[in-house]
Every structure is written in structure tokens, then in C-alpha cells.
Write a protein that binds this DNA or RNA. Sequence first.
DNA 1: TTTTATTAATGATTATTTTCTTTAATCGAA
DNA 2: TTCGATTAAAGAAAATAATCATTAATAAAA
Lengths: 216, 216
Amino acid sequence: MSSENTKKKEGIVPEPSLRRMPCYLAYLKLAKRRNQEYVSSTHIARDMGVDPTQVTKDLSYTSIVGKTRVGYEVNTLIDVLEDFLGFRKLDKAYLFGAGSLGNALLHDHGLDQYGLKIVAAFDIDPKVVGRTIEGVPILHVSEFEKMKDKNVEVGILTVPAEFAQDVAQQMAKGGIKGIWNFTPIRIRLGEDCVVQDTSLYAHLAVMFNRMSSIKK
Amino acid sequence: MSSENTKKKEGIVPEPSLRRMPCYLAYLKLAKRRNQEYVSSTHIARDMGVDPTQVTKDLSYTSIVGKTRVGYEVNTLIDVLEDFLGFRKLDKAYLFGAGSLGNALLHDHGLDQYGLKIVAAFDIDPKVVGRTIEGVPILHVSEFEKMKDKNVEVGILTVPAEFAQDVAQQMAKGGIKGIWNFTPIRIRLGEDCVVQDTSLYAHLAVMFNRMSSIKK
DNA sequence: TTTTATTAATGATTATTTTCTTTAATCGAA
DNA sequence: TTCGATTAAAGAAAATAATCATTAATAAAA
């Protein structure tokens, strides 16, 4: 019965830990540049201004094991983290909504480095459909259903708020397994499709609030 | 002494709550379109798939008060939220790093709606310095120090990782009070400057992880 | 008028996340 | 070899956030 209890939690990594991992990765890549062979959680923590035990706990979710009194091997840790985070294998993605924000994402080539390649974009606006942005063709949404490319599991949602839920449902129906949701709308879908919210404006709101706090 | 204890916490709004508020705002704007005059936390919660008490708790951080058995007035709540989140007054911002991601943000006009206007961008690459993207002039970083426009308190950080900490320090020195950090680097600064991390890749990592979970 | 159902608001409980503490390992210096 | 310093790892405690339960208010129906 103990195993029954832990089954649900087994293997699930806390979101805060997952969000910190790319920071460790960035730190490690800089350490590699400086030709550091080993780096300890103590140093990572000091340099990044976080708690040392948090670093070891976060890293313990991966397969890495550190050496007592030495730390972690930089190269190995980079490999393990990139692999763990899914940045190594390239995922193809469709982008839905080639408006202002969608356009913006099409201009960001950084995504490629992290394992995401936008292969097509969809919109309904005749002014953009048929065009190509940064090498990515913009098709009419109706084309999506015809494609059924089983290799494309990620969908980026950048449509106006009022269409978000509808389009998301189409995406899920069309075989999309992960929706990267840039709208401020909370998407409601079944269990077989993951929704990751990334509302830029939510972050802006937090920043504005914290800024007004320090003024007092 | 009780007031001594509560002083620190007084007025500080939990980040999870702040992040949810723009979602409520988006929901309310859609409700307004449907000509709904009042909306209850119960309905918001049901439609958005969250806990009803969480909605009332979140909203209680603002000045709004709901009517028992009726709910909240949609128009008032929109006004209060936009005001509370700082989306009403326009903040000017400088963008540091007009590379791929910086470029992308310059293409997103949605930011204007949420109270942020990029008035200038800075870079060191001679290929981009001097040009104009979407009406925003790109200047050499050395120009930043000369500007000292006290009305610009927000800085957007989209430089390569290795320059992030350095540029952030320059920003703070130049009077920037809030840094919207799009790099995966954890910035270390004094108390008088707020750093808001928004690493797209961190969100990507979470999505990849959750996607691999549902496959099992 | 009285009753019933619905709601905001508040306090209590539970779950999650972070921080603190301890332990065991081991490298390098004495 | 021996000792001290530094470390990863694991467990305990504290802080934080989410959920649950209760209360009081009130609009609408009986």
C-alpha cells in the first residue's frame, strides 16, 4: 500500500525544479568555457544565489551522481541535463496564429537550440496565408486537418484570446500532444494533451508589482 | 510586535496569485463581450477549471468587493485588475540585445496593450546598430549611459548568456528599476532593482517533461 | 413574509516546496 | 597514516500555497 501511495508521485519532477534546470545548464555551459572540469553544488549555489541543497535536490532528479568533495563533472552534467530536459532530440512544431506574437516567435531562432523546430504556421487571415516568414510557410488552418503528420506533436498557440480554446481543441484532435500556450486563456482539454502556459503578460504583471513594492 | 511580524508580509501578493490575475482579466474581457454584467467566482472557477476559493482569495488582494449571491461587476473588476496589474499606465522600456529573441519581442505589439512600450534598443553588433526595427531605433550600448532618461525604468534583457550579468549591472547603474530577464542566467543585483525571469526554454523544459510523462 | 439556494469571505486543513540539519564519504595536507 | 575540511545525499523542519469547511449575507422563489 505504500507503493500504491507513491505510485502517483513516482517519477514526477516538481515544476520549480524543472524550471531551474535550464539555469543550471546555462551556468554549466559558461563554466565549461572557463575550462572547469568539475563544479560543486556549493559553487553553483553561491554563484547563482540559491540554496546549495536545492541544487543537489534538483540535480538528483536526473541520473547524475556527484563525487564527494569534488562535485559534478561539467561535461557529463551538461549532457545529462540536456538529455533530461529534452533539448537534445529535435521536436517539430506547428504554430497556430501568425499574428504579432506568433510572428515574433518565428523570428526567434533560439528555439532550435533547445530542440524545437517550427515547420509550419497556420492562420486564417488572407493577408498572411500563403506567405513565408523566416522560411516557415503560413497555411490556412483548414490545411492542418489534412496534414496529420504524426511526427509533429508540439503546437504553439498564439491566436487571439477568443479563439484559444477552440483552436486548442482542434490541435488536440489533430494529434498534438503538447500545447505551448502563449494566450492568457486557461485551456481545458483531456488527459492526453499537455498544456504549458507561458503568458508573457503574467510575468509582466509580477514585475510591475514587485517594482511598485520596492518604491515604498 | 504582532505588527512588527506582519510588516514584512503586508501588501506583498503571492506570485502564483499575480500570475493568475491576467488570466482572470482575459476571461472577464470575454465575459464583457458576451454582455455579462456580473460574474461570480463560482462561474469563473468552473469555466477556467480552478478552485472557486482560489479565485476569491486572488481577487481579495485587489480592492474589489463582490456582492453576495451576485458576484463581481465585470466592468469594475476589469478596471480594478488592469489598474492593479499596472496595465493601465504606460511604462517606457529599453531593450538590450537586438538579436534573435530581442528582434522577436520588437515584433510583438501586444506589449503596448499591457502597458509596456519599447522606445529604444541597444546592441553592439555593427550590423544592427543604426537600423530601425518596427519603428524602434537600435543604438550602440555606449549610448545608453548618455541617455539617462529617468522616465525609462524597465529594461528587457535579451543578450547572449555570457553578457547577461554585465549588461544587467549596467542597466541597474543607469537607473533601470525592473529587468525583464529573458536569459537563462540568474542575475545578481542589489535591492533597488527587480529582476523578473522569463526563460522561454524553462517553460519548454516543463512541457517536454510533462509530455514524456503522459506517454507512459 | 418565510424559505431556499447561491454567493463572498474567512479560517482551518492539507499538500507542496524550500530551507535547515545530519551523516557518510573522501581529498589533500600534516 | 591521521586529521581536518569539503562535499553529496538524505532526512527533518519550516515556510508557502492550495484546498476544504464554515459563516453570514442576500436575491429570488414559495
